[in-house]
Computed example of a mutant assay.
Amino acid sequence: MRCLLCENLSFQIICKTCQATLLVPSFHKREIEDGFYNYSFYTLSELENLISSKYYFFGDKVFNILAKLSFEKFASNFEFDERVIAIPIDDHTRHEFSHSAILAHALKSKFIQPSYNTLRASNIVKYAGRDKEFREKNPRRFKLTNFYDKTTILCDDIITTGATITEAKKALEKKNNKVLFSLTLADAKL
């Protein structure tokens, strides 16, 4: 097959050379609410074409590579005084795989345990290209399964306005869960 980025022959959908040179993550921090932060590994402009692969059959391969380069690396350096649960935001399968579940899975470590099918949107509205006002008028209306009194990290692919992450955080907090921060692959505002 050919690498999606350089089009050279490769055994992976993104060749090792492109992974090592073009997909080196940097760490970005954005305050969403007072004292609550999102951490991203890339700017959206760096990953826009790759993130859109979530709509195609090969997207799981792309997301697995991106997750390994960023989320897995983060997890290997993360320490905490208790076990933390990684919650993918709305991890149901739409295109043969769940991109947010792939990201949460990459966080599995001594200190982090992923939990799937925990936080689901009951309103499946598309936010792509929509402003903050539209997002606030059309909330996801998250439903939380039997999940109480845990310390968590939220995971998603992109942060744009922060509305989805804020709504997910509030849904977890209603059941006495503590949300430390959120992690996303890319930040659309950088």
Rank of each mutant, 00 (worst) to 15 (best):
E79I: 12
A171R: 11
Q113K: 14
F181I: 03
F57I: 14
T184I: 06
D90M: 09
T151D: 02
R135P: 09
K150L: 06
N64E: 13
H99A: 10
K54V: 14
I165P: 03
Y127S: 11
I165W: 05
N177E: 04
G129K: 08
E82T: 10
S100D: 07
K170G: 07
L107T: 10
F97P: 09
F80Q: 08
K54R: 15
I153N: 03
L107S: 05
E79N: 14
L119A: 12
L183N: 00
K108Y: 10
T118N: 07
E82G: 02
R94Y: 08
I65C: 05
I85A: 04
I153D: 05
K175S: 12
S115Y: 07
K132D: 05
N138M: 12
N177V: 03
V179D: 10
E72F: 06
F63C: 05
T166H: 04
I158G: 01
P114G: 06
N146L: 10
G59S: 01
G129H: 09
K68W: 12
S53Y: 00
T164F: 06
I158M: 08
R94D: 03
F57S: 14
T164I: 10
A101S: 15
A128K: 12
Q113S: 14
V125W: 12
F111K: 12
T166W: 01
R83S: 09
S109I: 06
I89H: 00
